[in-house]
Structure formats: C-alpha cells, structure tokens
Design a protein around this nucleic acid. Sequence first.
RNA 1: CGGGGAGUGGCGCAGCCUGGUAGCGCACCUGUUUUGGGUACAGGGGGUCGGAGGUUCGAAUCCUCUCUCCCCGACCA
Length: 514
Amino acid sequence: MSNIRHALSVKRADDFAQWYQEVISAADLAEDSGVRGCMVIKPWGYGIWERIQRLLDQRIKDTGHDNAYFPLFIPLSNFEREAEHVEGFAKEMAVVTHHRLIAGPDGGLIPDPEAKLEEPLVVRPTSETIIGDAMARWVQSWRDLPLKLNQWANVVRWEMRTRMFLRTSEFLWQEGHTAHETAEDAKEHTMRMLEVYRACAEEDLALPVIAGEKPENERFPGAVETWSIEAMMQDGKALQAGTSHYLGTNFAQASGIRYQDREGTQQLCHTTSWGVSTRMIGGVVMTHGDDDGLRVPPAIAPWQVVILPMLRDKPEDAALIGYCSELKAAIGAQSALNEPVRVLLDTKPGKAAAKRWDWVRKGAPIIIEVGGRDMENGVVSLLRRDRLWDAATGKSAFETPTREAAGEGIGAMLEQIQTALLDEARARRDANITRGVETTEQLANFYNSGERFPGWVEVQWARPTGAALDKVVEFLKEHKLTIRNVPRGGNAADGTCIFTGEPAVERILVARAY
RNA sequence: CGGGGAGUGGCGCAGCCUGGUAGCGCACCUGUUUUGGGUACAGGGGGUCGGAGGUUCGAAUCCUCUCUCCCCGACCA
C-alpha cells in the first residue's frame, strides 16, 4: 500500500487542516479572492452548490414553500427590533453608510461626506427582521396561514476567523421563513424542515447526520428552540450542517405579524426559520475527501461520468471520438437517482492520463478512459472514484467492461457509489461515538489523552439551565468541547447527570467542533 | 480581535542575515520522438519580488505603515 502515489501532497492523517486546504484548491472548488474572508467559488465548486440547490429546492417546494427574494440591505431600525437578535449579530455586521464616492485628497476615492445615508443599512446576516416586515403586511387573517416562504441568497457575517466554505464572511444559503397560527403548528414545522435537512444531507450529500435539539446556550439569537443536524468529519470533529428554529412569537412581536383568528381577535403568529449554506460543501470535503482529492457523491456531482478519449492528435482520433460519443449517448440515456445520468465527453487537448488525475482530484464519481485498443476490443477502461486503488498492486483499479455493459450498468453503479459513500461515512461515525462515559474526568481524559480517535461522546445529563448550564459550558470549554445536540429519538436516560450528579433526563452528544 | 507563521511567474519553493535590478522544479508553448496510462528529448514564453512610503548612487533583500492568507485562541452557519 505504501507504494501508492497519491494525488495530493498532504495526507489527511498528517495534517488535516492543510489537507482540507489542498483539496479545495486541487479539486478546483474555490480560491482566495483577495477580499478578507471572501472566496471565489469556481465552476466545479459552484456546480456542486447548484446540484445541492436543485435537490434541496425541490424538497422545500414539496413541503409547500414558495421562493421569494428580499433585499440585501436592511434598515438599521428594522434590524433593531428584536433585542436578542441584535445582541447576537451586532458584533459581526457590515454597515452601509454612504451612497456616493468622490475624489479624495490623495487622488483615490472616498465616501462623499455629503452623501451620508439618513439611516445606515446593514447587510443582511440573515433575514428574519426584513421578512418579518413583509409577513406583517401579508398576513391579516387565519386564512393567510401558514405562510411558507424560502429564499436563496447571500448573507454577510463579519467573521473574525474564516475558512473556505466552513466560515466565510459572505456565504450562500437558503433561508426558510414561515408563520403559523399556533405554537404546535410552528413546532411541528420546525421539525418537518429538520427532517428535510436530514434527508437531504443523507440521501443527496451522503452525509450521515444526527438531528437533535441544541442546548440553550447554542440557540439562534431570538429563537425559542434551535435544532440542528450534526455531521462527523474525518478528524472526528462535528460540523453543524443545518439548523431549524422555532422562534415562538418573538419575531412576530417585533415585526407585528398578527392575524385575526376565527373569533375575530388579533393573535401573534408563531414563526420558524431554517437554513443550510455553502458550508455543506466543506462537510462533503471533510467527509468524503481522501488522499487523492475529493469524492463527490453522484447525486450532487455536476458530472457523474467523465469520458476521456486517449487522443493522439492524429487522424485516428476521429474514430475514437466517434466511439466515445456512442458511449456517451448510451450512458446519457441511462438514469441514476431518478435523473438522467450527467456525462461529459472531455475532448480537451492533453494527455488522457494527466486529465484523469485532474478528474480524480475533482472527484468525478466515474472516470472512463478509452484508447485505441479498447476501441478495437469493444471495451472501455473504467475507474470508480470511490475505489481508486487496487490494494494488492498499488495501481489504479481499472475495470474493463465492454462498451455495451458499461453503458447499461452506469446508472446502477452510480447508485452503488452514492450508497457506498454514505455507508462508509456512517460506519466511521458510528464507530466513533463513545458511550458509557460517566464522569467529567473520564470525559476530559478521553479527549486529552490522545490515545483514541477524538470522535463524539454521548453522555447523560439533567439539562441544567441558566447559571448551572454556564458552569457546564465553562468546563467543556476548558477542554475545547461543545454540546452538539440532544439527539432526536435517542435512548431515554437511565443514569445520573455527568455534570451535576442529579438524575439524568436525556442524552447529549459532546464533541470538538468546527 | 490577541499570539505565531507566510506573501517572489499558474502551482510549489530558493534568494533576503552579509543591498547591486531574479533563480529552480512542476505546469505552459514550439518542434522532435513517443505513448495503454500521472514519469522522453530539445528549444522557448511568462515574474520586478502583496501594496504604499522611506533609507541608499542602487532594495526582492534594510526601516515604517498597510492589505491578504495559514495555524492556535476568543466569537460564530
């Protein structure tokens, strides 16, 4: 195995953070932009985002939501309405104060002091307040409810420390906002969208996640309940991959979202909001990436199959391209994961072997190389990205099905790869959730001894609140730990609280996190 | 935002301490030769050294300021 020459220079095991950076650039996902905390998402990376968008958008529409678009700029006074919300986001806001530039004293441009805005505009870090404003106008009667909206947008949060995809100052996301008659309806909807995220993560991104409720200290500013899906990365850390919030009547109160009920009395709406972002892509990298680059799950791969003819810049090339075109047509006529197979015939000049490694790094699920001899024999050389190497020989694990077999079998193979990636990630996660830790000493030791892989630990607790919870969080912080969530549908508690010694009421997941 | 590291052709680096207008590998271009699998030979194009200012006859090399990135921390999707 040691004779395998991998496509990346850094291995996951040697330096996970650096490896992550290398995958981003080697797979051509994104690059630095020169603007603090902002990245350029390149075609392959954006193509993956577009796939996520398409699949998730359908799920969102299937649950009765309509898309709309609200302004990037939010009047400061509008944003100020919900106290906790303001407190939560105030520290990381971009603010627009001028609307014109003029020549400065040193030749450059400066904001025109004469063109100062009457009221500053904040660049949305999320849109609860401005959408709440619209909801207040749109909702009059109980007949208008539930109101279920979604928007695909960019948001800005002035982060202190950024990382490609995981935390950038500007990021792309989807934010859903709904208004309901009752707390029950709204809570139910919060859970419904959490389930949509769970399904999207697992079925589309092949990211096994654990859905559960966030502890009080991790709630979204202004939320009554915050739920999340958590995924385990290959270094054992947790990544919050999506959140769903029950907002109670907090934002309805702040924005005046009221309806007249069946008895004719004014009532406050109960609202929800939920979002997932381009951060998901970081999760895909850290879950499915390997020492040869990215492995993109077929469902979200812009190209699922890439055909590389071994061109020689000679007249014979025409026949080879013809052979490959027929293969492409046969594959394109197949379907996988309920969609036509997305296949690219890459005729860009260049050596097939070199191009192959480009696609390996990018993570195309299936790469098919076709040379003259393949053509003569009526076969193709097929490489599955999820099983790149032949462990026995240390060489690329090519298969050589006939062209017909390759064409017909591709759909099933893509579905197998999708499943294999999910299974692999799930097995790794399940093997790294430790139970039976009963004291804080054991917990601290588990993470600090360095003897074992730093996965997640499930412990029982009494769900302390307020100052008691602060104490717990403080202890965890000392060991760089966080409470991820209280898994939904987890086993009932049957012991004592690891922190307080009281009878436990539920089980929580503790982990280091991104 | 605090601590540490770093910014030199597309990528990875050397040069900087001991100032004298830039070098290597890969990639790229051309030609030749090859070619069933990342690995041939030769020739060639491309950078003024993150940015601004300063010291100096002269700066990638010294000084000041600034921008950006990476790692750790505090904060967060």
